[in-house]
Amino acid sequence: MENAFLAAFRLIVEMDPVLVGIVTLSLQVSLTAVLLASAIALPLGAAIALWRFPGRGAVIVFLNALMGLPPVVAGLMVYLLLSRAGPLGEFGLLFTPTAMVIAQMVLILPIVAALSRQVIEELWEEYREQLQSLGVTRLRAIPTLLWDARFSLVTVVLAGFGRASAEVGAVLIVGGNISGVTRVMTTAIALETSMGNLALALGLGIILLLLVATVNGLAYVIGETARRRLG
């Protein structure tokens, strides 16, 4: 354990270029996945919150269940999709960062959609009569509610980011953990563990934790300040 902190400390202080590359790619992949998934999932979650349609309950249960989708399964699905023998094979996306972004999107989308559905539904409960009175249509209400729930939604998006940056199973399968191309923090940790370099693996784990904590911390500080100001 002590060695792990030492290893982490040394890696950070030395700004090892390989590590910097891995960290950069990790952030690029996970942040891209989070932004793209959120751009789809937030309006989707809001739409499910606002509209009553047959089978709505089933959709909600299905989304909630998908939150527990094992990353390996998501990875396998994306692998089969992107494989040369698969339907999207001709784009040659397998073993690229784009494939990793897609796999992480599959993991994040249900989380952001399901949680934002809950958040928006509660806010809609509060706003519904007032907005209807003002003549706001449901379609128009979606951006309004998303904007007004922004502080809660930041937490939702961060939950997605946490899942994306922490998972290894999916990106390992679709990325291939290729050195310098698709190696991210989690797959590097898995590799070092398999090589028995436990201190180094744990050291990388500590750095990953610090990264995620930094992103969360920033979001928290910004969110709290704004929340206090805007009520």
């Binding site: 706003y127 009569e129 007032q130 009175s133 003549g135 309004t144 904007w147 007004d148 922004r150 805007l230």
Partner: peptide
């Protein structure tokens, strides 16, 4: 829709 308005017991204000 347009030419009527309502004020509620507890006003609902948007976060702005």
């Amino acid at each position: 829709r347009r030419r009527q308005a309502m004020v509620f017991q507890r006003p609902v204000m948007l976060r702005r």
